[in-house]
Amino acid sequence: MPWSRFDQSHAAPEGGGRIITFKDAIREAIDQAMIHDPRVFAIGLDADDKFGVFGSMLNLAHPERVIGAPISENAVTGIALGAALNGLRPICIHLRVDFLLVAMDQVVNYIAKWRYMTRGRIKVPIVVRAVIGRGWGCGAQHSQSLGGLFAHIPGLKVVMPSNPYDVKGLFLAAVKDDWPVIFLEHRWLYKNTGSVPEDMYVLPLGKGRIARAGNKLTVVATSLAVIDTLNAVSGANLDVEVIDPRCLKPLDEELILTSVRKTGRLLVVDYDFPACGFAAEVCAVVAEKAAHHLKSPVQRMTFPESPMPASGILEKAYYPNPDSIAARIRAMLDGVC
């Protein structure tokens, strides 16, 4: 299983090519990983049910390596870790990231620390997939993102892909990696389409991309927030650079700093809680390493400092969207262009 064969250039294809959905790109990545490497298996509540984790696990070549589970997230996550410690490469699946919280003991106390505590003599090649959901009155316990919470923990890599090409390459990279990876997929991206090569390829964890080039302001965003920001910017034709770091950790600081040195302005759009979060981290990096390039204070656009409400009218007010992002960018650029 020479995974090194798949270390290719990480440039996105220039248009054309095969167009598939985000969901099918994940499905293909899982399928290819399992075909390529017999050590790869999937485990989790509903991993093997007829809905196939929102379609992302359907028609796999190796269904015998997909193990469904009871509502026992903490044990199942520990079981996945145990399998990783004994030579396998588990993909541990959670239909909602909120359910993963039940396994926080295993994730934070065990998975994140095992490699460190064993001085790297034991590797922890585990991918924990969790889906971010929201909307339609899902409420406080079924709508969280929590990327920043996981990124806070030393020993975990955290990936939040925004498009089909990235999700496939990043997922394969996560399976290939000998570190634990928390892989957060936003459910609202599943139907989005894009050009995706059929072959296996990996994108390096920790290398971001410039989603759109621009000069007056840098916006850093991940996952669904990238798509909303691109819509905001292209709709209003704003001269803004959009950076998609792809991973919260390791963070592609250089990409962000280079952009901010050019534009002199930073807005982080982070679909997560604000306090001590990813947006705060990016602002801190810029403040530490590029403060003298800033022409105006950095800004964050996040969820409010509150859990998610249920009622539709409150949900609408709660979440940032392309319009509110465009308005914020315009306000930051007021008098600049």
Partner: peptide, 10 residues
């Protein structure tokens, strides 16, 4: 009962 903040499950 929860001022619309909870919905069916809360």
């Amino acid at each position: 009962c929860a001022q619309g903040f909870g919905g069916s499950m809360h």
